[in-house]
Design a protein around this nucleic acid. Sequence first.
DNA 1: ATTATAATGTGTCATAAATACACAATAAAT
DNA 2: ATTTATTGTGTATTTATGACACATTATAAT
Lengths: 274, 274
Amino acid sequence: MTHYNFYIFVCRIRYFCLVLKKKSLSDIRFDPNQFVPGHSVDCVIIGFDREGLKVLVMKWKGPEMFCLPGGFVLVDEDLDKAAIRVLKERAGIELPFLEQFSTFGRVDRRDDFTLAHNLKTIKLPESTMQWFEQRFITTGFVSLVDMSKCDPNPDLMSESIGWYGIDELPNLIFDHRSIVKAAVQYLRNQINYLPIGITLLPEKFTMKELQHLYESILEKKLDRGNFQRKMLKLGIFNRHEKHWEGGAHKAPYLYSFDTEKYQNLLEKGIGFVS
Amino acid sequence: MTHYNFYIFVCRIRYFCLVLKKKSLSDIRFDPNQFVPGHSVDCVIIGFDREGLKVLVMKWKGPEMFCLPGGFVLVDEDLDKAAIRVLKERAGIELPFLEQFSTFGRVDRRDDFTLAHNLKTIKLPESTMQWFEQRFITTGFVSLVDMSKCDPNPDLMSESIGWYGIDELPNLIFDHRSIVKAAVQYLRNQINYLPIGITLLPEKFTMKELQHLYESILEKKLDRGNFQRKMLKLGIFNRHEKHWEGGAHKAPYLYSFDTEKYQNLLEKGIGFVS
DNA sequence: ATTATAATGTGTCATAAATACACAATAAAT
DNA sequence: ATTTATTGTGTATTTATGACACATTATAAT
């Protein structure tokens, strides 16, 4: 282990000890030297239920401020690994893979001074204040998750964490609202040529749920019969037993997503021109 | 003008004076304080001619090193504006809009030490060395240009600038080769659902040229008749007079891209599902 | 001048896909 | 037993795709 790596190692140990011991927002210290200055990551974790698309949003301890789970990049850490770690530390969610969708680098992207103002009221040390006051360029990462399999927990800096409807977001700090919008737009573009989004559903799902998901992302109604046929013709689903939900109607089949068949489809290619 | 802004102003003036006066690489000084630390931009400018897709690449003065036109972000400058300025300063090309496609943040992305080594041989001041030795996260920007309308000129740090075939790149520093590959992959994904790339061609072009462009990006042969019909059915082209090039064959029509019709098409939407 | 050549614009036709709508099947409520 | 809401699938029409053909056109070769 080199001298430099040892230094990093000590920094991180110190950091984790602090995080584990302290409880209140103003008690939390952290050493800015362990982080890459000026760059952050923000995670847009998207879920889906009967009501539509949801985003995972945190609330700070104390002030009435909401934000995306985000954080900083360790000096010895790849950018995409930082996103994975930050999500784990701040939201308690472990995802093996997050997809980068855009980097936000406007000078005025943090010109909402709510956070800075609130941090002042809780009297943080000068070095911490300076850290938060610097300009940050942030890279947005997105992931689609099965909400029922996801148990988010707020970190020590946060009072709560929860799912908010994509059109019912609370007041997010900085440009976090436009980061969410950009993530959803990114999805909408993707879905036009790839049957993504299946990870938003539970393992087994009905065609109606899948259609509802597509309608939520595309924001338009689709024909039921044609949707079903088109999806099944992709050949990436397995049909399972029927599913009763307790309604005065016929029971629908359950389907699951077949990763292997999906790989075959990708290799075949889905193109705009022949 | 605030005290802070005045400081920035002075920095920039000093910087430009230095750049304009000095000639040799080791004479060039710059003040790292005017830049955001740790973040850079790199431009992948893509052109197209009979031989296929080309990328704009610069060669350093002295050492046998090639790189993308890239640079740093001023402290009072938006990230996308930085890309536009850097391209202007380094390549002499003015483009009003560059498209961000990905951010590269691996710790080891600059672990090719050619540049650092070569900078040492020309004895730069310590502050400059430290600046170049820090970790950089870089955001890649891409633009498709009409090569015939583009007259690149190397800046004072560079010996030459030129177009290189996408499969005949010289040895690029750092991860610049994978940045180019990522940009081309980005294009390939885009073209699957949007008729982009028209900006790579001159104002008026033949269907054969357009088809050749598509074949270059998609790396596969397309049927001539079907390609022509599909493109014309999009309704985004205007037909003009015929064009003689001096060959033993029928003269083809010239076409131009109609921005307004294209907007209509976008509003109508081009979707994977109905 | 005539013929050959190479590339272009467009046509044809079989096949596949998309769209709009219909109808029987099913399970629970009445 | 009947009604109701919802599901799986069918059908008929329209539209798109893919492979190939053929006439057209400007130049080159003879």
